[in-house]
Amino acid sequence: MTPQLTVDFIKRLGQTTLEMRFAAEAEILVLFGPSGAGKTQTLQAVAGLSTPDSGQIRFDDAIFFQRMPGKPVVNLPARKRRIGYVFQQYALFPHMSALENVAFPLGRRRDARDCAMELLERMHLAHLAHRMPHELSGGQQQRIAIARALATEPHILLLDESFSALDRPVRERLHEEIRMVQAERRLVVLYVTHNLDDAFAVGHRLAVVRDGRLEQIGRINDVFTRPANRHVLDILGIPNAMNAQVIETGPSGSLLDWDGIFLEAPPINAPLGAEITAYIRPEDIRLVYPDRSLSRMVIHNHLEGIVVERRLERHMYRLRVALPDGRPIEVIYPSSLYATMNLTPGERVRLALRKESIVVIAPRERVSPPIGTILSERVPDTGVIDPASSSLT
């Protein structure tokens, strides 16, 4: 049987209200969003460290929390929920060794130290079992915190910005460990982060949170390539967003008016004059060689601009170009391309925006279903909360 955590609750937090409704199975679900969006508060409600005002939190048939009309009130203590929680600041006991820290949740169990040593071996830290926390590196402390969270064999693992302070190589190793542990134990993992690279590295699905509500949930690549609305677009930091008007549409394509710049786009299911949000991925923009004939890849949507910045990022260049009216455009391309072109700041360039790569986002309002409507389905692709069906679509 596939384990399932269902979350459907409301909690008022000062001037804002946290309304979270989602389901997670044996997977790593990343909660992603800006600071103050409600990600940590969601983990605390699931863990039993914070009590919602109403709703229900359930793992399979076990009700963790319930406060709903006509049903008995339930608020299972945190210690009985079998949840492992890894905090951002590790929260190791400074007066205990690594082995003692891991063994602590096991209490007086006769095999506590043996179990703790097995977990340290799993985390490749058995040789540091008798070191104190201050004698360990940040990455080692974090692995001990993970081992301690796994000591009681939890069904659910919560990670709250747990790797944010670590260097990239250490984070990458820990991401691999988490994915392996999750697969081996079939854990439900909720992973809070504001780092999109971490989300891609470790997660199976992505839940975008804004102002205490879920904007979109689905497979990470689907959410990133097909954001549900402008809010998701901005939260994910996707560049080259545009607000445009539909001035022509048909089976072969559409024509958009982007504040005086006319762009050919794929067919759009929208009436003439409709205001839409669209974007084009930086990697889908091409530079046009001034001394070469145009290929099929660069025949549409030519724009002139001035190079503002060129920055090398690993094996890719990120080029920032200003259009004549000052609007910025970002281009990403492999470092092996355009080697013969002068792309220093101040140089004039010609861009081609591929018609097929302009992604149109249909405008829609975010509306939450009523409390008691559990979004318990496994989302196959990507979704936002649909007021018509009160489910994920």
Rank of each mutant, 00 (worst) to 15 (best):
N221R: 13
N221Y: 10
V223K: 03
F224V: 15
F224A: 07
P227K: 02
A228V: 14
A228M: 09
A228S: 14
R230K: 13
H231P: 11
V232S: 10
V232Q: 11
L233A: 07
I235A: 01
L236A: 04
G237F: 01
I238N: 03
P239F: 02
N240I: 08
N240W: 09
M242F: 03
M242G: 05
N243K: 13
A244S: 04
Q245K: 15
Q245Y: 15
V246M: 04
E248W: 07
G250D: 08
G250C: 05
P251R: 06
S252Y: 09
S252D: 15
S254V: 00
S254A: 04
S254E: 02
L256R: 00
L256D: 01
W258M: 09
D259G: 09
D259T: 12
D259R: 10
D259M: 11
G260C: 06
G260L: 06
F262P: 08
A265L: 03
A265P: 00
P267A: 00
A270C: 08
L272C: 04
A274Q: 11
E275V: 08
I276L: 06
T277F: 02
R281L: 03
E283P: 13
E283S: 06
D284W: 07
I285H: 03
L287C: 07
Y289M: 11
D291Q: 13
S293E: 15
S295Y: 12
S295F: 11
R296K: 10
M297C: 11
M297W: 14
V298R: 06
I299M: 00
I299Q: 03
I299R: 00
N301E: 03
L303S: 05
E304K: 14
G305D: 04
I306S: 14
E309G: 09
R310K: 13
R310F: 10
R311Y: 08
R311P: 06
L312D: 11
